[in-house]
């Protein structure tokens, strides 16, 4: 097989794979992955790109995290919101190489609650962001990390 044909076939295969992937994702997922927010290296950029900038501090966000995490590769985080009309909870770790970790949208009866295990690069606040009634709210808890879980 000559090089041009090989390149063409390779390109076609990629195009087909991408197209079918897009179609499948389009069918299964209403949401699109927010690349700008998740690849942002600074907290401010990540918050802005994900629509959580300028959040008001709130006492109605409950956060359960360990005070000390001996293994930054596995930090349990539990968050719930009692703010009326909560539609989303997002988790950020201020000093991770990519501070945005996850966002959960609650639909059709899902409670504004999430528990998930995250990675933390170093000691930092775990920042919980909430969207409710078109506004954004925040609360955070410090977690001391004794062995980071991102590089290696």
């Amino acid at each position: 097989m000559n090089q041009a044909r090989r390149t063409f076939l390779k390109g076609t295969a990629v195009a087909v794979a991408m197209l079918s992937g897009v179609l499948r994702v389009g069918r299964a997922f209403a949401l699109e992955w927010n690349s700008a927010a998740f690849t942002a290296k600074k907290l401010d950029e990540a918050l802005k790109s994900s629509g959580y900038a300028n959040a008001a501090a709130s006492d109605d966000i409950d956060i359960k995290v360990p005070e000390i995490a001996e293994n930054g590769a596995l930090v349990p985080v539990e968050a719930s919101s009692s703010i009326p009309g909560t539609t989303s909870i997002a988790i950020f770790s201020d000093k991770n190489p990519n501070p945005m970790i996850a966002e959960f949208n609650f639909l059709n009866g899902a409670e504004p609650f999430i528990s998930v295990r995250i990675k933390m690069a170093e000691t930092a606040p775990v920042r919980i962001m909430v969207k409710a009634g078109g506004k954004v709210y925040t609360a955070s808890r410090d977690v001391k990390v004794t062995a980071g879980g991102c590089g290696g």
Binding site: F29, T39, N98, M100, N105, L107, I118, C150
Partner: peptide, 9 residues
Amino acid sequence: EAQWGVGVA
């Protein structure tokens, strides 16, 4: 519906 980055364990 959830979006995750590389920071999920």
